[in-house]
Simulated scan of single mutants.
Amino acid sequence: MREICVIGGSRYFGKLLVERLQDEDHQVTVINRGSVPPPPGVEHLVVDRNDEAALTAALDARTFDVVVDQVCYTPVQAAVAARVFAGRTRRYVMTSTIEVYDPATAALPASPADTPVPEDVVDPAAWLVAMDLPWHDDAYLEAHYAEGKRQAEAVLTRAGGFEFVSVRSAHVLGGGALEFTGRLAHYTERIAEGRAIAVHTKAQPTVFIHYEELAELMLWATAADFTGPINACSDGPLDVHGLVAIIARRIGREPVHRTVPAGGEASPFSFDRYYAMSNARAKKLGFSFSRSTDWMPGAVTETLTTEPSPTV
């Protein structure tokens, strides 16, 4: 049994991770602002992780084998965590994102065309950190989500008070109504209703992961001994046409496409640039991934059997 702290953990794969940790008989503590209570048997510390004094006081003399940070979005939050948890934990696992590789949000090293990017394309040890940017402004943070994640990784990588891992997740789907972004519902609703799906002229592939698989990978990462960034994505990149074809077969209706001009707004997961990660490092370290095409039809079915979500 290990002492594990989860910051966030109130919804989707974070909530599932808490349940899986309990299933393995670990002692779990959840830190969040109290909007959603954790499962019975989980210690709950209601505190704002941005308030360093309050977080320190809430933790008191507690120590943990592992901290899993589901909700670190800025270098400021990362710096608070680095100070508070230094000496309190051996290992710190942060949920990051495929968006750290988005060339639209940063000047990144050139990669071979149409090649899934490995982790070293974004090296957090060398990434510039700017703590004086308006990270506390919600609008700024939303517009600079990818950069916030890159800089948060950089701060925690350099902290030195614990082993650090960043899990760079692909686009997460599955779970029906649990998939709170509504991106898969965007497609199921439009195809079912015969509405057009906006796509780029030359839509490029991206990568996905099922929320249960991501929870399993996070669980695996808590017990492993590697450090640094790791990409988390199922095998088999899909472009928007491949994704739509899977959904359309499940619904039994032909999709309608509308091509958007260059720079135009397209449906989620339609990209005008190659946007796939390599999961080779995780495989080499021992994690086995499923194929996107194996679980995607079931994820579509889950969406079809839940209440419609807001159109996005």
Rank of each mutant, 00 (worst) to 15 (best):
T206Y: 08
A196T: 09
Q204K: 14
G175E: 11
Q204V: 02
F162V: 07
H200C: 08
T181F: 02
S169W: 06
G160L: 12
R183L: 11
V155M: 11
Q204D: 02
R183P: 10
E163F: 00
S169N: 11
V172L: 15
G176K: 11
A159S: 15
Y187H: 14
A170D: 13
A185R: 09
T206N: 11
Q151G: 02
T157I: 01
E189D: 15
T188R: 03
A159N: 15
G176C: 08
T157M: 00
R190V: 06
T201A: 15
L178M: 14
A203H: 01
G161L: 06
R195S: 12
E189T: 15
Q151A: 08
P205T: 07
A196P: 08
L178C: 11
L178Q: 15
S166Y: 01
L184I: 14
A159W: 03
A196E: 12
L173M: 15
A185V: 13
F180D: 09
F180L: 12
K149S: 05
A170G: 13
A177I: 13
A198Y: 10
E179L: 04
A152E: 08
H186D: 13
A170E: 11
H186M: 15
E179T: 07
S169T: 09
H200M: 03
E163R: 10
V172P: 10
H171N: 15
Q204T: 01
A198S: 14
V172Q: 05
G194L: 08
S166N: 07
A152T: 09
P205Q: 07
G176A: 09
T206P: 07
A198D: 14
Q204I: 03
G176H: 12
L184R: 06
A198V: 06
K149L: 11
Y187M: 09
E179I: 08
L178I: 13
A159R: 04
H171Y: 13
E193F: 00
L184S: 11
R183T: 04
E147I: 05
R190D: 07
P205I: 03
S166M: 05
H171F: 14
E179M: 06
P205A: 07
F164Y: 05
